[in-house]
Amino acid sequence: MRIAHLVSHDGLNGVATSCRTLIEAQRTAGHDIFLVVLPQSWLAANLGIAGIVLLESALKTRPREIVRVGLAIRNWGCDVIHCHGSRANKFGIVYRFAGPVPVVATAHAALFQLPWRWFSAVIAPSRATADYHARVNWVPRRHIHLVPNGICMPPPGSDFSQKRAQARRALGLNDAEFVIGTVGDLCERKNQADLLRAAALLPADLGPVTLVFIGSPPQDREPMEGWNEALAQASTRHRVILAGQRGDAAALTAAFDLFGFVSRMEQGPIAPLEAMSNGVPVLTWPVGNLPEIIDHGRTGFLVGQGDVEGFARLVTELARDRERLRRVGENGRLEIAATLSPQAMQRGTEAVYRAVIGSRAPALPAPLRQTP
């Protein structure tokens, strides 16, 4: 199959990571890929597989650029177009009406944009995302298909104790520290200030913990509300490391004893699942598809949205029971390996493609129904 991907995210984030995972799995499965990306994008620079046709475009909705990209895709001869990101979606909806090639879009975000209704199919990484687009953007349920993001697992036989030691050295951590870490842009949506507030509530007899934040503030934005105050308060008792944006963030999660996630809104977050793939247990609010993946107390931990005190109580319990942490971390790793492989993501996406181009294909997941 010949697949054209349009990706309008230039930096390192969950969208770029999931696109890389999907594209590499598609090439490995024998598909041909035409990739349209923003100039100097992280995705183009970090593809780990050869044989991909690359076209750079700012994806600005100007007639000449829409025609240039569209002609390049048509001349290459694709079977399906797959869009990722708002700017890519604008190009995709034009091509949906201008030609015979079906156009699929992945709902990486929950945004009010009525053109979603007219894509050939919409891929949702979580049921919550599917429900949003059916309810708000009026996308017909029969056009929405659930395909969770795939996660690249460490190679078979990996020595996780060695990975942990290497990651700790890279972050300047010693083996005795109890480390709570997180990954993501420092912003209102990711809400890391609440992780600092939870740390400030930990009992004194627990001793100091180390908090690691991998990520930087988005450009041209003010710090999230309350961040500086929460940082100052937490720093009086605990060690806080602001590691900045890191291309090796997935590997560095192996340094954590616990991955804390307090994001206000997600669709199919990648970073918590990357931590789970390294055997690190995740403590999270129930956002995106995490409640669909995490079985509380067995493969990870869930606490009510916004419950900072409950988050702190559970951290305290877990810090005092390292064997429980180890056991749940291993269960989570096995769960990710069994259910969220790149190959499973590729197969689910291919089934959607084959449905919209009218070919015979494996059975699709049943169209999603409204959840109670």
Rank of each mutant, 00 (worst) to 15 (best):
H143Y: 08
I144E: 13
H145A: 14
H145Q: 13
L146H: 14
L146E: 09
P148Q: 03
P148I: 00
P148E: 01
N149R: 13
N149Q: 11
N149L: 09
G150D: 11
G150Y: 09
I151A: 12
C152S: 15
C152G: 13
C152H: 13
C152D: 15
M153T: 06
P154G: 07
P154R: 01
P155G: 08
P156F: 03
P156Y: 01
P156R: 01
P156T: 03
G157M: 00
G157A: 02
F160W: 12
S161K: 09
Q162C: 07
K163T: 01
K163P: 00
A165G: 09
Q166Y: 00
Q166P: 00
Q166V: 04
Q166F: 02
A167Y: 01
A167G: 04
A167C: 03
R168C: 11
R169S: 15
R169V: 02
A170G: 06
L171W: 00
L171S: 04
G172K: 00
G172S: 08
L173K: 04
E177W: 01
V179W: 12
V179A: 10
I180V: 15
G181C: 07
G181K: 05
C187F: 00
R189W: 01
K190H: 07
K190I: 05
N191I: 03
Q192S: 09
D194F: 02
D194S: 14
L195N: 07
L195E: 03
L196K: 09
L201R: 14
P203M: 02
P203W: 00
A204H: 11
A204K: 10
D205G: 08
L206D: 14
P208Q: 03
P208S: 10
T210R: 07
T210A: 11
F213M: 14
S216R: 08
P217H: 03
P217M: 08
P218G: 08
Q219T: 12
D220W: 12
E222C: 09
E222Q: 15
E222P: 12
M224P: 15
M224C: 12
M224N: 06
M224F: 00
G226Y: 10
G226Q: 09
G226I: 04
W227M: 13
W227G: 11
E229P: 04
L231F: 13
A232K: 13
Q233F: 05
A234D: 08
A234V: 01
A234E: 10
R237Q: 10
R237A: 06
H238E: 04
I241C: 05
L242E: 14
L242Y: 01
L242A: 09
A243M: 06
A243L: 01
G244C: 06
Q245W: 00
